[in-house]
């Protein structure tokens, strides 16, 4: 119970959930749990069912793509405070990448099956959550575009 109360506060204080009313926060917190991953441990693997999303409390998780015969390619890292994973709201609800803790990481996970049911049943809550995820997705897209353009590449004299 103490742990649940801690989770409730963590969720309430996180910028992602800013502006959400108490009732909505309570519903969301009901689907949340604390998880711990050691360095090198996978949080999820490509192709597995996306049955959760995560909030990084402390640590660092690399989203990466495996390629045969070469080192994995890290697309980005999710660090303290980041919200990680939106495959749980996009059919067919499967992870597109691997997520590997690069050091000891403590995450809050949100059960997608539990949440999807609540969001379907309460369109206002669903809209509030989707609005927040659109912001995360837009930010990631902007960052991915900046990473693509070889910002620090050869300039001119």
């Amino acid at each position: 119970m103490v742990q649940d109360m801690g989770l409730d506060k963590l969720i309430r204080d996180h910028p992602f959930f800013e502006g959400m009313d108490d009732e909505a926060l309570e519903l969301i917190a009901g689907c949340a749990a604390n998880e711990r991953f050691d360095a090198g441990q996978y949080v999820f693997r490509e192709g597995q069912p996306a049955d959760k999303f995560y909030m990084v409390r402390h640590g660092s998780v690399a989203l990466e793509v495996r390629a045969p015969g070469r080192d994995s390619i890290v697309l980005q890292t999710c660090d303290d405070g980041d919200v990680m994973g939106w495959s749980w709201i996009v059919p067919p609800f499967r992870w597109k990448w691997d997520a590997r803790a690069t050091r000891l990481s403590r995450l809050v996970s949100f059960d997608a099956i539990c949440l999807r049911g609540k969001l379907d049943a309460d369109p206002a809550l669903g809209y509030a959550m989707y609005k927040r995820f659109v912001r995360v997705i837009a930010e990631r897209l902007a960052h991915a575009r900046l990473q693509m353009i070889d910002l620090y590449g050869i300039g001119k004299e």
């Binding site: 994995s72 590997r100 900046l146």
Partner: peptide
């Protein structure tokens, strides 16, 4: 942070902003 890395890099990957 770096824009591109392999799994051997233990630091951050992403844009500086």
């Amino acid at each position: 942070t770096v824009d591109h890395a392999t799994g051997r890099w233990g630091g951050k990957v992403g844009v500086v902003t």
